[in-house]
Design a protein around this nucleic acid. Structure first.
Length: 310
DNA sequence: TGCAGTGTTGCTTC
DNA sequence: CGAAGCAACACTGC
């Protein structure tokens, strides 16, 4: 689920606690002798990479933590940057963890706050230890997440970040920029364009459904046929929904938790996502929410008030 | 009980 | 070349 608001919530949390801490150790159970995919070679899923990763980061101090698209960037004082992508089920938790040698797992210290013991916070696959005796645990039940190391200077010009689209909440990202970006993929359904990280950064399945519902645009509409007024509403809805997601601490309908292991609350404010069969809540609309597959992803929308422009 | 569905991404196939 | 499908993996819920 981690999309821009969830990654922002995590990054803001990390920025409050990590700067000036020194990394004293790192552990993982993901590193394998042979990787299943060539693009995993330069990530923590490779044993060879992990050995070098460990050597490179132990002793380094955290300068700051940033977000780019759905990526978390932890900048270190040795000129290197740890890049983490949470993918589907990843989340980072900051607290006091204890290694259980017998079962080869990390668990929160028994005295840790209740939220860290939430069953969704099992599945710890990477642990960073800091010089204040606290840990950063990467929980990821499906193990799709990515952890790698980049030179800070060229981080944005690596395969992980090169070509990623503009940040939708950037103060300088105006309506004209938005339209210019969307026209990158003129023939795709609007929902799919919104989710394309090389067109615009950070939007995923939940927030694209929600912003299209607010803007009254059917997810299969073609950008060239959508009236300007509707596009303006979409631009506004995008900012509104992403900011609302951040204000509610992200969406924890599924696995996402903040760095204290707590759920976000945006899932309590969905208008369409995962609401198949429910009445459309738009004022005066008698529609019923349906689910279909668009661009290989599940889309939720109200076929009554969300207009199809094609 | 078993199997469809699950946020993401990028490789492979057609 | 672009679009579609699927693989990475494991769990939940119907």
């Amino acid at each position: 689920m981690p999309e821009l608001p969830e990654v922002t919530t995590t990054v803001n949390g990390l920025q409050r606690v990590l700067p000036s801490l020194r990394i004293s150790d790192v552990w993982t159970d993901l590193a394998k002798k042979t990787v299943s995919r060539s693009d995993f070679e330069h990530t923590i899923k490779s044993e060879k990479f992990f050995k070098n990763f460990k050597k490179s980061i132990i002793g380094a101090k955290v300068i700051n933590v940033e977000r780019r698209a759905k990526n978390i960037l932890i900048n270190l004082n040795n000129g290197q940057t740890i890049l983490i992508h949470l993918k589907m089920t990843g989340h980072l938790i900051y607290g006091d963890y204890v290694y259980n040698k017998k079962s080869n797992i990390w668990l929160p210290h028994p005295n840790e706050r209740k939220s860290l013991h939430d069953p969704y916070n099992r599945f710890v696959h990477v642990v960073f230890a800091f010089n204040n005796k606290r840990h950063l645990a990467f929980c990821d039940s499906r193990k799709f997440g990515k952890v790698t190391l980049l030179d800070t200077k060229s981080a944005h010009d690596t395969v992980h970040l090169r070509g990623v689209g503009p940040e939708p909440l950037d103060k300088n990202f105006n309506f004209t920029d938005f339209i210019k970006a969307l026209n990158n993929k003129p023939n795709w359904p609007i929902k799919q364009i919104l989710m394309d990280q090389y067109t615009i950064a950070g939007i995923g399945n939940i927030y694209s459904d929600e912003m299209l519902w607010i803007a009254s645009i059917h997810p299969e509409s073609r950008i060239s046929k959508i009236p300007n007024l509707y596009l303006k509403n979409l631009y506004r809805a995008m900012q509104e929904v992403l900011n609302k997601g951040i204000d509610f601490g992200g969406d924890s309908m599924s696995d996402y938790r903040d760095i204290n292991g707590e759920r976000g609350k945006f899932q309590n404010h969905h208008n369409v996502y995962q609401k198949k069969g429910e009445g459309c809540g738009k004022r005066g609309c008698k529609g019923v929410i349906i689910r279909s597959i668009i661009g290989g992803r599940s889309a939720h929308y109200c076929p009554t008030h969300q207009k199809l422009f094609n």
